[in-house]
């Protein structure tokens, strides 16, 4: 029997106001954004912070959504619980604390793609506010499109709007997969 009360207390301790685990579809994305927006509205959050949370959430969710497109369907791996790993499945949580919000996402990533992502995040984290601005403008104007249009602006935008360093971690799952945890603080 699942101990729901444990779940409840864990989420309560981390002040989770919204969470989701599963496949990220376009419709789901719309629903999460709508729910978050009305929650922020009800909390009477200041407009500046409300907009930042919404913006960063859009980028985080669309990262998950697009990443899912790239996932290899042929990976035959089992989770800790012994279930087949569903590469299209992700985890998303929004936590609220006294000094702001934290957006957390988790998804499986292939080992071969880790180094590139790690380098990218470290590069962004090493930049000052002004450097991020210039880097954003440079990437915006580089005429390169990704298949979905963003062309590598997402993480720079997240870093700029959140005003905090991007917190991330790769939790090894097996020799081919890790679980990529992303924590974005917004205040």
């Amino acid at each position: 029997m699942v101990d729901l009360y444990d779940f409840y207390n864990l989420m309560d301790r981390h002040n989770i106001m919204l969470s989701f685990k599963g496949e990220v579809s376009s419709d789901l994305l719309s629903s999460i954004l709508q729910i978050t927006e009305s929650k922020l509205e009800r909390l009477n959050e200041e407009p500046r912070l409300k907009k930042k949370v919404y913006n960063v959430l859009v980028e985080c969710l669309q990262n998950l959504y697009h990443h899912i497109d790239e996932a290899h369907p042929d990976i035959d791996a089992k989770s800790l619980a012994g279930n087949p790993i569903e590469m299209r499945s992700a985890l998303m949580m929004i936590g609220r604390s006294e000094d702001g919000y934290t957006i957390m996402t988790g998804n499986h990533i292939e080992e071969v793609n880790i180094a590139k992502l790690r380098n990218r995040l470290d590069q962004i984290n090493a930049m000052t506010k002004e450097e991020l601005k210039l880097h954003y403008q440079e990437v915006l104007n580089n005429d390169e499109y990704s298949s979905k249009g963003g062309g590598g602006l997402g993480m720079i935008d997240i870093a700029r709007k959140s005003g905090h360093k991007i917190n991330y971690f790769f939790q090894p799952v097996n020799d081919r997969l890790s679980f990529f945890c992303l924590l974005i603080k917004i205040s």
């Binding site: 907009k51 919404y54 913006n55 859009v58 980028e59 669309q62 915006l140 104007n141 499109y145 979905k148 249009g149 963003g150 062309g151 602006l153 997402g154 935008d157």
Partner: peptide, 12 residues
């Protein structure tokens, strides 16, 4: 009111 990074290159 809002635009995502996927839109930003199109706006450019």
């Amino acid at each position: 009111e809002y635009f995502n990074t996927s839109s930003s290159k199109c706006i450019l």
